[in-house]
Design a protein around this nucleic acid. Structure first.
Lengths: 216, 216
DNA sequence: ATCGAATGTGACCACCTAGTCACATTAATT
DNA sequence: AATTAATGTGACTAGGTGGTCACATTCGAT
């Protein structure tokens, strides 16, 4: 937890901002379209007009770059979500979850590249790369859901007999699925019906979770 | 849909059954531990004591082998599930889904390698490989869920206002998540509490879906 | 203007990959 | 036994990978 983890070598930060951003942007594109092993340092160097030797003066190795890019993306996502946590206290669980889901979809709309990177990461099969990123501080959104559920139980919003872990798992699973779905459905097509389609889907899902499907 | 897709070259089927099974087993292991691009034909040849030249007399290329292995795995899974569809008529939707989920978990227990291959495939980022397998006839379990839901609506088991697509999506998502969870949780550890743990989880999830979480 | 440190560079290394092919070996047929 | 067909084999090609390093260039301070 010390401040020793600025990850890239200082030389990287001595670069002009433009150059730095170019490298980051190119690396982001590479890692969001290919998995860790398939992503190519050579390609990143070519596309950002950086000599191989220079690159290795900025980053210790491939993993160093990957962790750095992932960290930036995670920071961006956290920043994007940070403001909604303030108003959380005033909302019901239903509203909280709805907000989280919609905000996630919006994030993918505003930063499609970052969203794609996240999806790629969740499918990453290189254990070393995955491990390194998680160690560097991936926020466990699981604990957030659990807190929300416990809170809602105390407030009497939901049935106290509900299996908290199962519900938390369910919400995580759905969140991921919804994002994948939206990305695949509206990723290339126009954004015309983006919002309404997404909102309707989330509404339907939450309706099922809160009211159940049994005929009453 | 003609019978022209026996995929490997006839020479492969002229091999002794032992040799054939060895190749299949080694390839299964390779593709279930590495993604398509990372998986190595060289390794498969070495581990199954087949010369490179021989291998390419059996299979046209890497994709040919991959599609063949995936097809075998899919067939195995279909066979594993085939008997339960008979008794489906007599069951309620809750029982049907429960059975499907538990059967899926059992499949992973009996054929862990095949289950791992399936998980690997769902994470596959090589579009060509994914496409080729899907074209070769991946069963859309989505349609099965939709049929089940529609049927349950007609029988009056569940609320007719429920969003069928959303519910189907939800079931697919949960099915996948449960399998991943079980595999990661009990994959290496003892099978002591496997069944009860799995059953309890599925029960909790279905309880949420059918009854909702709202306090009543 | 001179020196020294920091940085840019691309040829190069060792190692991997998928796929090929001329040749050796074996099996089957005449 | 001789001929032909089928099959086994591994060196080889062309191309990729991550990473290194001796050298060229630039920059900053004396």
């Amino acid at each position: 937890m010390k401040g020793e983890s600025i990850m890239p070598n200082p030389a990287f930060f001595n670069l002009s901002e433009d150059k730095r951003n170019l490298v980051i942007s190119v690396a982001l594109e590479e890692f969001s379209t290919a998995n860790y092993d398939t992503a190519s340092i050579n390609q990143i160097c070519k596309k950002s007009s950086v000599a191989k030797g220079s690159f290795y003066q900025y980053f210790a190795d491939k993993l160093d770059l990957y962790v750095y890019i992932m960290t930036l993306a995670i920071e961006k996502k956290i920043a994007f979500f940070s403001n909604i946590l303030d108003e959380f206290e005033t909302l019901t669980l239903l509203e909280q979850i709805h907000l989280l889901f919609i905000k996630g979809i919006e994030f993918a709309k505003v930063y499609p590249q970052h969203a794609a990177l996240g999806e790629q990461f969740s499918k990453e099969s290189n254990a070393t790369a995955k491990q390194a990123v998680i160690k560097e501080g991936e926020k466990q959104s699981e604990t957030l859901f659990i807190q929300m559920i416990d809170h809602a139980k105390i407030k009497g919003e939901i049935d106290g007999d509900v299996d908290t872990l199962a519900l938390s798992m369910m919400l995580q699973s759905l969140n991921k699925t919804v994002n994948e779905y939206i990305q695949n459905k509206f990723g290339d097509i126009s954004y015309k019906h983006f919002d309404e389609g997404a909102s309707k889907l989330v509404h339907s899902l939450l309706d099922i979770i809160f009211n159940g499907i049994k005929k009453r």
